[in-house]
Design a protein around this nucleic acid. Sequence first.
DNA 1: GATGTCACG
DNA 2: GACGTACGTGACATCC
Length: 955
Amino acid sequence: MADKQHLYLVDGSAYIFRAYHRLPPLTNPEGTPVGAVYGYTTMLWKLAEDLDKADGPTHLAVVLDKSSKSFRNEIYDQYKANRPAPPEDLVPQFPLIRHATRAFSLPLIEEPDVEADDMIASYARTAARQGWDVTIVSSDKDLMQLIGTSEQGGTIDMLDTMKSARIGPEEVREKFGVPPELVGDVLALMGDSVDNIPGIFGVGPKTASKLIQDHGSLTAALDSATDMKKSKLKERLLEHRGDAELSRVLVTLKEDCPLPIAIEDMKIATIPPEPLTAFLSEHGFTSLMRRLEGGNGGPGPSTQLHPAKPQNEGEGHAPQGNRQPLPDMPDVDRSAYECVQSVEALDAWIERSFKARLVAVDTETSALDAMQAELVGISLAVGPNEACYIPLTHYTSDAGGDDMFAQRPEQIPLATALEKLKPLLESDAVLKVGQNIKYDLNVLARHDIAIAPIDDTMIVSFALDAGRSQDGIGGGHGMDELAQRHLGHTCLTFKEMCGTGKKAIPFGQVPLDRATEYAAEDADVTLRLYRHLKPRLAVEGGTRVYERVDRPLIPVVAGMERHGIRVDRDRLVGLSERFATEIARLEGEIHEIAGQEFAVGSPKQLGEILFEKMGYKGGKRGKSGQYSTDQSVLEKLDAQGAPIATKVLEWRQLAKLKSTYTDALQQAINPNTGRVHTSYSLTGAQTGRLSSTDPNLQNIPIRTEIGREIRQAFVAEPGNVLLAADYSQIELRLAAHMANVEPLREAFAAGEDIHNRTAREMFGEVDRDTRARAKTINFAILYGISRWGLAGRLGIEAEEAQDLIDTYFARFPGIQRYIVSTLETVRERGYSETLFGRKTWFPRINSKNQAERQGSERAAINAPIQGTSADIIKRAMARMGPALADAGLQPGAPDGVRMLLQVHDELVFELPEGLVDDAKPVIEQVMAEAATPAVELTVPLGIDIGTGLSWDDAH
DNA sequence: GATGTCACG
DNA sequence: GACGTACGTGACATCC
């Protein structure tokens, strides 16, 4: 024979699992996950490229598992019994593996009631007996038994395409310490937790290998036990002999299965291009398509947000049982970090990052506020302990960073470094991973760098573990906490670098050796966290919310923060003065009534004045022994005819408005932009809502006339207007949908006033009083009702409140079902879920402490509703930019439509007056249709839109 | 840093 | 028999 035949047998089922765990969750244009399919396709591709090579394939077939049952189940009912179900986003990929195989026009073997391993064994032996060479494309250790050379001179070896390693008899001996024919004996002793093969309890690979080496066979090893010295091992060998013998049968491959396709028919020639092109294009594997067209395509799937991980790293173990294995990573070694001070060194790191196709990034700055902070340095990590810090504007003298006389250590000029880094940070082919990467996005956006594509470990943690905490601590998503929790690693703290209080120094003054340890560690730890947390998303079902809702929102929210909103400072100054005068007047009157001066703002002093000195009744002490003096208490006193209570209430309102708003907002105006830039937290609220800080722009007054004057200070730039669009009654609409409450759905569909409808259902008649009570009850339902809570709100007895609740449940029966079933699910699983799959954990839902438990129950009833509402507006926000762009409305441009604020159910935009008519319908449509197509609601989402020169006028 | 209060959805 | 009563947030003042 001129050319030896060489049969390649591809263990497709094993491959897809490994590809799944190693590759990021790519999706095709239709949104189906295809990460593992992509890995599989490239592997076939590689094999196809080897067709003409010396030991390349002449024949090839793919073998898949058709069903999970085989003869092994008949002799051992526990076989593979503890296998977890495959991850939810892997399941749809199984059929695609078949499509891929057919696209390459390759023979596919899948037989019922036969495991792929047995089929591979049968084919391999048959081919080798005919003198063919055989290569098994797999890394399954069970298959290693087959390696060797037949009497007819046919060799069998294995190819691990992920490690690009050939496995022959030598490699087997290295791994097991025995030749291939004894591998089965070793496996029988050590067992296999993945397949649930028992082996001998307490015997692992090391002991098993030694026993077989010493005695030459399983039977001899087991027999030797009787003569062994007394030991744990001896006992175990004697006691579990039966397990080992059973295991020996289980690990033996069946080599005489009937062959559905003759090996001669597996010959491959040129692969016909048409089916392959169709397949590649269907799934958006564009780089492979380019290669097919003759060009030399890029390294990864360039149309995908997420390039594949490099082939030479990230090789972990397959998950064992249900345990989520810690990625195999060395301990953090800060001495391994490099301080990058030359352009050459920077170039080398940039090249490494491109090669790795995944880089963790962290920026160090002079302050916390991303809008004002100056860039001090950047750190990168491409692997555990493979991290560097690039100092940029460090200085050592007391002079400021901008001072031309400042002493500066050797550093690459800022502009040079950023010019070098920009292509990396913006490259589609390299995934940038950050911890709270929104911050880095904002800092670098000010240097004209738009980081993409991105992943964020903080957001991943939030998608997985929102609400999870142990004993009140450890529920956060900050890096130091995550490092401690998941990696058992304690990070250097910012305090250790910069000190605190008056002695604190800016990060730019930290000596480079220490700064490198701190900054590079941040990138290193981020990368490690990514490797640990990201795979959990798919396994635990967090992929959808992370990829479709939260991650796309990061650059959108970053943009909103950078836009900020214009605030009329003069107006605030005027208000502050007015409030100050009024507060002083009220304070005088209060002191006069009290008969002495005291700090009105001190609840402690006020309580003593009211309930001791003045002798009012109704003084209740809290657990701290203090009298309560909150609004409800003061209102009761007011009703009793206590003039001081009214005055204090007025004083409090004005003091609050002045300190929290009119004074503080002036301070918050950014001197460079003249606007106020809040910071949104994407992980702040456990339900999935955003929260706003520094300043909080989600609690600007609106409910009172005087408070609304503050809203009038939020204004549009000249020639522009503000547009406010809010979801009307969104939580009640969602409750009507989720609890399937027909009367409420009907009312929403008809555009009825929902509280009127509730009043009619509950009380039979609608007037101001019944509507107000109905409104209270509606909200009480959303918040998880209790008879006492409702009684307190309505000023009625608890029994009466219970009657109202009963009536409500009777009129709207779906509500009670929703509450009961929600609680059941949460008790059982530990978490609630929104319509879009966002989880919120309730670790105290089964607490023995009644108050704790009931608190969790109320929160658990509310979370799916509040969270779904949050999901919906987030989806609207993520889609808004593209929709506005399609309409030619230039989202984000100074003369286009800018989205500025989000207040839970409201979005605020700034736009040129001339664009209002065009923008309104686009905004309304995006918001109204934000749930689709993922979720089809049975209630319409109503949107109210208004415009005006101020935020107040826009309502 | 904890507590009380109050601004918002 | 005691518990402590609506869900989710953030900021400020006071006081220890």
